[in-house]
Amino acid sequence: SKIRITWGDKTWEWDGDDEEVWKRILEWARNLGDEELWRHVKEWVDK
């Protein structure tokens, strides 16, 4: 399956939905430097 994140007018996609993928997404969000996006992603990961 895919994980799709839409933020503003951008959309990103990742293949898979296991823990490793979420770790990569969390790292990606942090590297993007958008605090609010990172917080949202972290909330999803922690669920």
Rank of each mutant, 00 (worst) to 15 (best):
E20K: 11
T11D: 05
K23N: 10
W38C: 07
D46P: 07
D17V: 07
G16L: 13
W44P: 00
I3C: 03
W14K: 00
E19T: 14
E20M: 13
K10E: 11
D17N: 14
R4P: 01
L32G: 06
D17M: 09
G33W: 07
A29D: 00
D17K: 11
I25P: 00
R24K: 11
E36C: 09
E13T: 08
R4N: 07
L32E: 15
V21N: 05
E20Q: 14
V21D: 02
D15A: 11
I25E: 00
D34K: 02
K10M: 13
E43V: 05
E35Q: 07
V21L: 08
E13M: 04
K23W: 08
L26S: 04
N31Y: 11
R30T: 09
W38N: 04
W38P: 01
I5G: 00
K47Q: 14
D18Q: 11
R24N: 11
T11K: 04
D17H: 10
G16S: 14
E19F: 13
S1Q: 13
R4D: 02
I25W: 01
G8R: 11
T11H: 08
H40N: 09
E36F: 05
I5A: 01
W28K: 00
E36V: 05
K47S: 10
E43D: 14
V41F: 04
K10Y: 10
T11W: 10
I3S: 01
W12C: 01
K23S: 12
W44C: 03
I25K: 00
T11N: 06
I5T: 01
G33A: 08
S1P: 15
G16P: 11
G33P: 04
T11V: 13
D34V: 07
W22I: 06
E27M: 07
D17F: 08
D9F: 01
L37H: 02
V41G: 00
W7C: 03
A29R: 00
R30I: 11
G33K: 06
K2G: 06
I5C: 05
A29G: 03
K23Y: 13
L37G: 01
K2P: 08
L37W: 07
K10G: 05
L37K: 01
N31I: 09
L32I: 14
N31L: 14
T11Q: 09
V21C: 03
D46T: 09
D17G: 15
R24G: 08
E27K: 05
V41M: 04
I5F: 15
D46S: 11
K10A: 12
W14T: 01
G33I: 06
R39W: 09
D34L: 06
E43N: 12
E13W: 06
G33Q: 09
D17L: 09
W38D: 02
G33T: 05
E19W: 09
G8N: 11
E35N: 06
L26E: 05
W12I: 05
I5E: 00
G8T: 02
R4Y: 14
E13D: 07
E35M: 06
W22H: 06
E35S: 07
D34I: 10
E20R: 10
T11R: 03
K47M: 13
E19Q: 13
V45E: 05
W12T: 05
L32Q: 15
L37D: 01
G16C: 11
H40S: 15
V45M: 15
W22N: 03
I5N: 00
L26D: 02
W22Q: 03
K2M: 08
E36Q: 07
R4K: 14
W38S: 05
E19H: 15
T6L: 09
L37P: 00
T11F: 11
D17I: 10
V21S: 07
R4V: 14
W44K: 03
D15S: 11
H40A: 10
W7F: 07
D46M: 07
W14G: 03
V41K: 00
W44N: 02
V45S: 12
H40E: 11
E13N: 02
W7M: 05
L37Y: 03
E13S: 05
T6V: 11
D17E: 13
I3D: 00
E35K: 07
K47F: 06
R39A: 11
N31R: 11
E20C: 06
K42N: 10
W14S: 02
E35Y: 07
W44D: 01
E20W: 11
V45I: 14
E20Y: 12
I3R: 02
W44V: 09
N31V: 11
W14N: 01
R4F: 13
D18C: 03
W44I: 15
V21W: 04
R30V: 08
N31H: 11
H40T: 12
D34R: 01
K47A: 14
T11E: 10
E27D: 12
R30G: 07
W44S: 02
I25Q: 00
E19R: 12
R30F: 14
V41L: 11
K10C: 08
W28H: 02
L37S: 01
D18V: 10
N31E: 14
G33Y: 06
E27W: 06
K10I: 11
T11M: 11
A29C: 06
K42P: 00
E13R: 01
K2D: 03
E36W: 08
E35R: 03
T6G: 03
W28N: 00
K10R: 12
I25S: 00
W38H: 08
V45R: 09
W22C: 03
E27Y: 06
E43R: 07
T11G: 03
V21E: 02
I25D: 00
L32R: 08
D9L: 01
V21A: 06
W12E: 04
H40C: 09
I25H: 00
R30M: 11
D18N: 15
H40P: 02
E43Q: 11
R39F: 08
K42A: 12
R4T: 12
W12K: 04
W38T: 08
K10T: 12
W14D: 01
V41N: 00
G33R: 04
E43L: 06
H40V: 10
R24L: 15
S1L: 15
E35H: 05
W22K: 07
L37N: 01
E36A: 07
R30W: 15
E27G: 05
H40D: 06
D9I: 01
R30D: 05
S1A: 15
K47E: 10
L37I: 07
S1V: 14
E20N: 13
N31W: 13
G33S: 07
G8F: 11
W7V: 05
E20F: 14
R4G: 05
D18L: 13
W28Q: 01
W44H: 06
D34P: 04
K23T: 12
N31C: 07
V45N: 05
D15G: 06
L32T: 15
N31M: 13
K2A: 09
T6N: 08
W22F: 11
T6E: 10
D9H: 03
W22G: 03
D34G: 06
W22S: 03
I25N: 00
K42E: 08
W28R: 00
I3G: 02
D15E: 13
W28T: 01
E20I: 10
W14L: 04
K2E: 02
W38A: 08
V21H: 02
W14E: 01
D46V: 06
T6S: 10
W22P: 02
L37V: 05
A29F: 05
R24H: 09
K2L: 08
R30L: 14
K47N: 11
T6M: 10
I3K: 03
K47W: 04
D9M: 01
R4C: 10
D9W: 01
W28F: 06
K42Y: 10
E36N: 08
V45L: 10
W28L: 02
E20D: 14
E36S: 08
E27A: 11
D18K: 07
L37Q: 01
E19I: 15
K42M: 12
T11I: 13
V21G: 04
E19N: 15
W7I: 06
E36T: 06
W38L: 14
T6F: 11
W28D: 01
E20P: 03
D9N: 06
N31S: 14
E27Q: 12
K23R: 12
L26F: 06
K47R: 08
E36L: 08
K2Y: 10
G8P: 01
I25L: 06
D15P: 10
D46E: 14
V45C: 11
K2W: 11
K23E: 09
V21F: 04
W12V: 06
D9T: 04
R24Q: 10
K47I: 14
W38R: 05
K47D: 05
L26R: 03
E35D: 13
D46N: 07
L26A: 05
E43P: 01
K2R: 11
D15M: 08
L37A: 04
N31A: 15
W7K: 03
K23D: 13
D9R: 01
I5W: 05
S1I: 15
D9C: 04
D15W: 07
V45D: 02
G16D: 08
V45A: 15
W28P: 00
W12D: 01
D18W: 15
I25V: 14
L26G: 03
L32H: 15
E27S: 09
T11S: 12
R30A: 13
E19Y: 14
G16K: 13
E35G: 04
D34C: 09
L32S: 15
D9K: 02
D18I: 14
W7L: 05
E43K: 06
L26C: 07
H40W: 15
T6H: 10
D34E: 05
E13F: 05
V45Q: 10
G16V: 10
K42R: 12
W14Y: 03
D18S: 15
A29W: 02
D18T: 15
G8S: 03
G8C: 07
R39N: 13
W44M: 12
W38I: 14
V41P: 00
E35V: 04
W12L: 06
W44Q: 07
D18M: 13
K42T: 13
A29Q: 00
R4H: 10
K47H: 14
G33F: 08
E27F: 07
I3P: 01
I25G: 01
R4I: 14
D17Y: 08
G8W: 13
R39G: 07
D34F: 07
L32M: 15
N31Q: 12
R39C: 08
